[in-house]
Computed example of a mutant assay.
Amino acid sequence: MFITLEGGDGSGKSTQAEILESWLTALGRTVVRTREPGGTEFGTEVREIVLHSRGHISPRAEALLYAADRAQHIATKVRPALERGDVVVQDRYLDSSVAYQGAGRVLDAGEIRNLSLWAAEGLLPDVTILLDLDEDVARARLDGANKRFDRLEAEKSDFHRRVREAFLALAAAEPERFLVVDAALPPEEIAAVVRARVEELLVRRSQ
């Protein structure tokens, strides 16, 4: 099973990925927890470039860097794990590219999606958990964490508003794949909603 978590910066994806991994492991499932960019050695190098480069990166170059990371990541880590029967829990995937580079950077969302699908050889998640959070609330969370912002986190509110709207539009277009959860809820309440959806899929797969 391939599970992805999506949402704006500060929405709590890493926390939910950790909780979900622990629950699945307790059920006896082998879990591969990963992220984009940065899920492979090559991806770690790409992550450093796209998120922490001090020089200007054009929107198209940024989109291509993410696609390159995705191609390597899916081919060398995700597909092998799925073929072994493992559960992959992944922080960000192609929907992030459509939202951030398509809407945030104002590129063609269809082209970005097609590029990502080509890079991943058409692989789509079994379920995508969208943690939806108002962009101003998310920024307050990031400010409270006292961390150094990366290139995307440092973008202005309008950028993050476009990203959020794009995520919600993607979820509305594919309701059978997406589960939208209010990320303002307490983490355990969110985790319970996520577990219910994943458990439903696990039962369906076992029948």
Results as ranks from 00 to 15, higher is better:
residue 1 M to G: 15
residue 4 T to P: 02
residue 8 G to L: 03
residue 9 D to M: 02
residue 10 G to T: 00
residue 11 S to F: 00
residue 12 G to H: 06
residue 15 T to G: 10
residue 16 Q to G: 05
residue 18 E to Q: 13
residue 19 I to G: 10
residue 21 E to I: 10
residue 22 S to A: 15
residue 25 T to R: 12
residue 26 A to R: 13
residue 29 R to Y: 12
residue 29 R to D: 14
residue 31 V to T: 06
residue 32 V to F: 03
residue 32 V to S: 04
residue 37 P to F: 02
residue 38 G to N: 03
residue 40 T to Y: 00
residue 48 E to L: 12
residue 49 I to S: 09
residue 49 I to V: 12
residue 50 V to Y: 03
residue 56 H to A: 14
residue 58 S to K: 11
residue 60 R to Y: 07
residue 60 R to T: 14
residue 62 E to C: 03
residue 66 Y to D: 08
residue 67 A to T: 10
residue 68 A to W: 02
residue 70 R to A: 04
residue 70 R to D: 04
residue 77 K to R: 15
residue 78 V to W: 01
residue 78 V to T: 12
residue 79 R to S: 06
residue 81 A to Y: 05
residue 82 L to I: 07
residue 86 D to I: 01
residue 89 V to L: 02
residue 89 V to Q: 06
residue 92 R to I: 00
residue 99 A to I: 01
residue 102 G to I: 01
residue 102 G to D: 02
residue 103 A to Y: 01
residue 104 G to K: 00
residue 105 R to N: 11
residue 106 V to T: 13
residue 107 L to Y: 01
residue 108 D to K: 06
residue 108 D to A: 12
residue 108 D to I: 07
residue 109 A to H: 10
residue 113 R to N: 08
residue 114 N to Q: 15
residue 115 L to K: 04
residue 119 A to E: 03
residue 120 A to G: 11
residue 120 A to N: 04
residue 122 G to P: 04
residue 126 D to A: 13
residue 128 T to V: 07
residue 130 L to C: 12
residue 130 L to T: 12
residue 130 L to S: 05
residue 130 L to K: 06
residue 132 D to H: 07
residue 132 D to K: 09
residue 137 V to C: 10
residue 138 A to D: 07
residue 142 L to K: 10
residue 143 D to N: 15
residue 149 F to D: 11
residue 149 F to I: 14
residue 151 R to N: 07
residue 153 E to F: 00
residue 154 A to G: 12
residue 159 F to L: 01
residue 161 R to E: 11
residue 165 E to I: 05
residue 169 A to T: 13
residue 173 A to G: 09
residue 176 E to I: 09
residue 179 L to D: 14
residue 185 L to S: 08
residue 185 L to N: 09
residue 187 P to C: 12
residue 190 I to P: 05
residue 191 A to M: 08
residue 191 A to N: 14
residue 194 V to M: 02
residue 195 R to D: 04
residue 198 V to F: 05
residue 200 E to A: 13
residue 201 L to M: 14
residue 202 L to V: 14
residue 203 V to M: 12
residue 204 R to S: 11
residue 205 R to D: 14
residue 206 S to Y: 06
